[in-house]
Simulated scan of single mutants.
Amino acid sequence: MIRGIRGATTVSNNQEEQVIDAADELLRKMIESNEVEATDVASVFISVTSDINAAFPSKALRRFPDWKFVPIMCMQEIPVVDSLPLCIRVMLHVNTTKSQASINHIYLKNAVILRPDLASNN
């Protein structure tokens, strides 16, 4: 069965190194806490708020061994008024036997306000 694993983080500035490093940290924590193997990943969606355009956060995933063939798509979030700025969101679509309640969703930095109920499980 395919399950979604959610995650989000923020950067303090729209700078290439910050965007890639923040995505790297988030993705590593999502992968490690859910014991994800690249061969079990159907696809990855990464979105950013409109104030992030210095880099594709997907570049972070290309640093990971064995993730070469995982399909990744970057996109822009809907620009909702008063939404969290400088935010990177990730959705991993993973083949797993885990239940929904067993999935560890990861929220870092200012993104913990998006889902404090899930962030407390980090």
Rank of each mutant, 00 (worst) to 15 (best):
Y107S: 09
V80K: 12
W67Q: 14
A38I: 03
R28W: 08
A23H: 05
L61Q: 12
V94Q: 04
V90F: 13
I2F: 05
R3I: 06
M1N: 10
I103P: 06
I103L: 10
A60R: 08
R62Q: 15
V36S: 01
I106E: 03
L92Q: 04
H93P: 00
D117T: 08
I72L: 14
R3W: 02
I5S: 05
V19A: 08
N13M: 12
L26N: 08
L92S: 04
G4C: 08
A8P: 00
A8E: 03
T39H: 04
H105D: 14
P57A: 06
R63E: 14
G7S: 06
N95E: 15
T39K: 13
N95W: 15
L108G: 08
V11H: 01
S99F: 09
G7L: 02
A23I: 05
V70D: 05
S43W: 12
A119H: 07
R62K: 15
S47C: 04
A8M: 00
S12I: 13
R115S: 08
D66T: 12
I113C: 14
S99P: 00
F56R: 06
P85E: 06
I20L: 09
A42W: 02
S58M: 07
I106P: 04
S43V: 06
E32P: 02
F69Q: 15
K109T: 01
S120K: 12
V90G: 02
K29Q: 11
I46G: 04
R89A: 14
S120W: 05
I31G: 01
T96R: 09
P57E: 03
D66V: 03
K29A: 01
T96Q: 09
A111R: 08
E77I: 03
W67F: 15
Q18H: 09
V11P: 01
F45I: 11
M30C: 10
Q76S: 09
L84N: 00
A119E: 07
R3Q: 14
N14Y: 07
P116Q: 11
P71M: 01
R28S: 09
A8F: 00
F64W: 07
L27Q: 04
A54S: 11
N14S: 09
N110H: 11
C74M: 15
D51P: 00
M75D: 04
V11L: 03
S12C: 12
N95Q: 15
S102W: 04
I46D: 01
V11K: 00
V112L: 11
K68G: 13
E35L: 11
A111D: 09
N13I: 06
N121C: 02
L27S: 15
N14E: 08
V90W: 02
T49N: 03
I113D: 08
V36E: 01
Q76E: 12
L61R: 11
I31W: 00
Q18T: 05
R28I: 10
S12K: 15
I78M: 13
S50W: 10
N13F: 11
E17S: 12
L108K: 09
A55Q: 04
V81F: 10
A23D: 03
A23C: 13
I46T: 06
L114I: 12
I20G: 07
V90A: 14
L108I: 10
C74F: 11
